[in-house]
Design a protein around this nucleic acid. Structure first.
Lengths: 136, 136
DNA sequence: GAAATAACTTGCAAATAGCAAGCTATCAAT
DNA sequence: ATTGATAGCTTGCTATTTGCAAGTTATTTC
């Protein structure tokens, strides 16, 4: 679906559906890199999850690797492009916390209000560290 | 669709589809408040647009008013809840600009990198002013 | 009063999502 | 080495959602 020249529209063509950002939340924030780990988080059907992972790989947002410790497993690791989405996820936590009934991670929302940049830097370094460990 | 207690999931239940955030972009950033103005921006079908506006009204994210200057027109004005989404839209502009082919509003993306808070404050005050003028 | 315009509404075809049950490769245990 | 379990992925079918085109109604303009 080709829409406008607006970067928001272009971004939403890649990540603007009901599941993609939740998958990226699992990868970027929960460090759930394996298919079954992601599938367990929310009730996403396996064919839909597969489709979303394939699209994200095709777009260069995540990379598919065989887990060297267990070759049945595939691990889906975020690229820099995905890591740059952390600010969006953080903003959504704050908005969801303030404007919906869900109060799952209120501490994060509070920390963001105090020092947003620090929270984002922290989340970024944690996921980078975790990804590096998986690749090693 | 009831998903988890995660505020990201709750937020995406409200705004996580292919069109809703584009509609909010038109309202919050382009100050397009009328049905036909929004419908013209991207090729959204009128029944889909109607459905999204109805949902946003039901969720308290926007309000429906009859335009006092032309009573055929309905104007959909953002509430505070919608205005709090401006950071999300700004982050999407930055990400889309850096990670997709769309380079529509590169100036905004650059300004955000220099002083994000200032850009957000500016966009907020502009939409508040514009909404107040419409209500008056 | 007639034509135009804005906001919806409806009917139907095409695309997408979701469920359940497969299949294949690898691993762990006997 | 065979057996059973597990991980990733695929397939078939149904239900929901989307998208297009052509209405309908209220209001405005000429």
């Amino acid at each position: 679906m080709k829409r406008s020249e607006c970067p928001i529209a272009a971004a939403l063509d890649l990540i603007g559906d009901r599941w993609t950002l939740l998958v990226l939340r699992d990868i970027l924030l929960a460090h759930s890199y394996a298919f079954s780990e992601i599938a367990d988080q929310e009730g996403i059907a396996t064919n839909i999850l597969m489709d979303r992972l394939d699209r994200l790989v095709a777009a260069g947002i995540i990379e598919r690797h065989v887990d060297s410790a267990d070759r049945r497993r595939r691990i889906y690791l975020p690229t820099d492009c995905a890591i740059e989405l952390i600010p969006v996820l953080v903003d959504l936590v704050v908005w969801g916390n303030a404007n919906t009934a869900a109060k799952g991670v209120g501490e994060v929302a509070e920390a963001v209000l105090l020092d947003r940049d620090a929270v984002i830097r922290d989340l970024e370094s944690k996921v980078r560290e975790s990804v590096a460990a998986k690749k090693a």
